[in-house]
Amino acid sequence: MSILNRTMDAARTPRLWAVLLATGLMGCVFFESLGGEKPFAFSHKLHVEEQGLECAACHGAWETSEEPGLPSPRQCALCHDDGDAEKPAERKVATLFEGKNYRAARFTALGEEVIFSHRSHAGRAQDCAACHAAVAENEVPGPELALTMDSCTSCHEKSQTASDCATCHTAIRAERAPATHGAAWKKSHGPDVRAQREGTANRCDLCHTQSSCTACHQTEQPDSHGPFWRRRGHGISAAMDRASCSTCHPASSCDSCHRETEPLSHNGGFGSPVNNHCIGCHEPLAEEGCATCHGATPSHAQATPKPPGHLPSMNCRMCHGNGQPLPHFDNGGDCNACHL
C-alpha cells in the first residue's frame, strides 16, 4: 500500500479527526493563555475607576445627540500633554487618533438596523453602568463592551415600554428570518436550539412557539422523499444511516408500512447470510406459513414436536446435521420456533 493510500485511509478514521479537533482546541486555549504584552489602548478602568473621570468628560454629547460622541485629541491633551512629552512615539495619546477622529473600533456600535437614540435614553437609567456595566473594568476596548439585547429588554420590561421588534429594529421581524438563519441553518439549528445560548437575541421563543419544531419535523417531509424514495430509496438510506431517520421517525414508522406492505425487493435471501431480517416481520415462525417466503413449502405449524428430553437450551447441532448444512439453524433461525 502506498504512502498516499495509507494517508487517505488514516484520514477516513473518525477517531483521528476527533483527536485533531481536541488538539486544535487545546492549542487555541494554550496560546490564548500565554497572553502577551498589552497593546497601547485607552483604559476605561484607569480613567473612570482610578482617576474618577465622569463619562461625560469624554462623551460630551451623551445628553444632546443621537450618538454619545468620542473624545477629541484636544480633550485628551488637556491631561496628557505633559506626560506624553517624554514617552516614545508609539505610546503617545496622539497615536489613538487619525486627524481629529478617534481610531478605535466602535465596539458599542449597534448597527444601521437598530433604532436607538442616546439622547432619548439619557437620564432614564440611574447611571451609565445600567447599560455599560463592562466599562468599569475594561482596560482595552474590545467586544466585551458591546451592548446586549438583554440590557435593552430588561429596562423595557421594567419600565413597561413597548418591546416588540419594531420598537428597536427597522428590519428584524417575527415574519423575517434573521441573518443567523442562513444557508447552514437547516443543518445546524438542532444543536443551537439545545444549547439555549445566553442572551435575549438567542431565544427561539421570540419568534417561534414549540410547535415550530413539530410543524417541520412531523408534518413535513423532505423533498427527497419522492416516489422512488418511498418504494426503494429509503431502505438503502436507512441501512446506511438509520440515525438520520430518527430525526423525525420513531421505530414504529417502519412497522406501520412493512407489516402491511410487502417490501418491493422481497425474497427469502434478503438480509443474508443471517436472514433474520425476515423474522423481524414474520414472527413467530410457527404461526406463519413457510410459503410466505418459500413457495410450496409446508407450514411450520406442521413441524414435528421435539422428542421428550429435548430442552430448548440444547445445541441441536451437537447431534443433528452430521456436518451437513442446517438451513434455518445455520442462518440464525431457532429450531424451537417450529419444533415446539
Binding site: 415574519e175 423575517r176 438563519h181 442562513g182
Partner: peptide, 21 residues
Amino acid sequence: SLGALAAQDAGSLLARDPSAG
C-alpha cells in the same frame, strides 16, 4: 447575504415554519 439565502431555501416555501412567517 446568508439571510437572503435562507429566504430562498431550496425546500418548499410552504414547508418552512408557518408560525414564524
